[in-house]
Design a protein around this nucleic acid. Sequence first.
RNA 1: GGAGACGUGGCCGAGAGGUCGAAGGCACUCCCCUGCUAAGGGAGCAUGCGCGCUAAAACGUGCAUCGAGGGUUCGAAUCCCUCCGUCUCCGCCA
Length: 433
Amino acid sequence: MLDIQLLRSQLDSVAQRLASRGKPIDFSGFTALEAERKTLQTRTQELQNQRNTLSRQIGMLKGKGEDASAVLAQVAELKSELEAAEARLGELLGQFNAILAALPNLPHESVPVGSDESGNLEQKRWGTPRAFDFPVQDHVDLGEALGLLDFATATKIAGARFAVMKGPFSRLHRALAQFMLDTHTAEHGYTEVYTPYLVNADSLFGTGQLPKFEEDLFKVPRGEDAQPLYLIPTAEVPVTNIVRDEILAAGTLPLKLVCHTPCFRSEAGSAGRDTRGMIRQHQFDKVELVQIVHPEKSWEAHEELTRHAEAILEKLELPYRRMTLCTGDLGFSAAKTYDLEVWLPAQNTYREISSCSNFEAFQARRLQARFRNEKNKPELVHTLNGSALAVGRTLVAIVENYQNADGSITIPAVLRPYMGGAGSIGAKIGAKA
RNA sequence: GGAGACGUGGCCGAGAGGUCGAAGGCACUCCCCUGCUAAGGGAGCAUGCGCGCUAAAACGUGCAUCGAGGGUUCGAAUCCCUCCGUCUCCGCCA
């Protein structure tokens, strides 16, 4: 959420910066709305002040056993105007809140202006895509041939966009998550957390998924009057919400948290995209990094956090590149985002495997997540997060990049301890009857 | 699932329709006192928003906020309703 003060005082420059995201927002009604708000709020508070003053008099008079009917009559005169003013002001403030809740974050000055992903800026490449001397297969062909990846059964159990893994694939999937968690906790200074996979609407509002993006979520209705819950689309939601409505002591920052969870996305707007394989699923695992930092440290933290994600790819020796998302491709809540894209030889391209964002105070304002600053005053924190990494896509990347001519898959050295020492996946087990 | 109790400032805790944004304590900040071992005295100390002043603060003033939202009332922390949550007992259970 943007600062309402900023909107009031610098509407034009805010509108301009938001327009760089591609869809210009119509602020034409805003100025009139704001003018009405200002006079109405002042008038309402004035009336409330009169009512409060008179009511206090009534209390005093009655306390002394005196007649208060004259003052009561005075208050009665205020009543209708006050009620009307309060009602109208409530409407106006409701409209402001709705506008505010739907406005995306301001892109940082360093974000390149562009209309879509073609405007994203490549920052760096790491590693060299391997040259294959045999026809490259994708993870679906490789996995199904090994009998370790089964989409047909997943479809039977649940539907499209789910996967069943078996044997060494399942273990590799688990190994990846363990390896990532161990690296971030042991080498990057993160504290591992375990959180709910179902969250309430307040939490999703806090990180920015609600109210605008409800159709991307799986909603779990409950009883008649009970509030619905939602399956988390990312651990960002429960983990960042740890600090919702909190005022943190100054010494507790930065908070560096890492969390492995499944993520659930309805992929409502993605019908027909990436329908093959494990790239885009309704359910996938992810290891997420979250940092809650002092506002002056967030840009530094953004670089650091991105490096932590890159470190995983480097340890796995997977070629990748780092992209700075342009204004048109930037997510709703982010001020700046680096996407890490891993090389997928079967697609002969780089595909997103991590997204590392600085939200500055945008989420913190929604969350009312604050800390006591140097003046001992509550001040909004800055929040950041990044995938490090999406586990399913990492598995895809390993299977495809480490494939051998015979259809077996070499296990990257750093993962072998997690795989019982195995150096490759090759034997066909659990083949379909 | 059944029965009961409860939700107040950073924390603990009083208040039970009127001058209460809220006693008292702890913590914290500043000042004074004090040559010692978590000593004493004084002052300050919630958040958001509006308006004024300001370069911006500080400051002044008003409004709102005692889990959240509604209601009753001239007036609600206090009464009523709904929701959220906590605790105790019983039942059930991975």
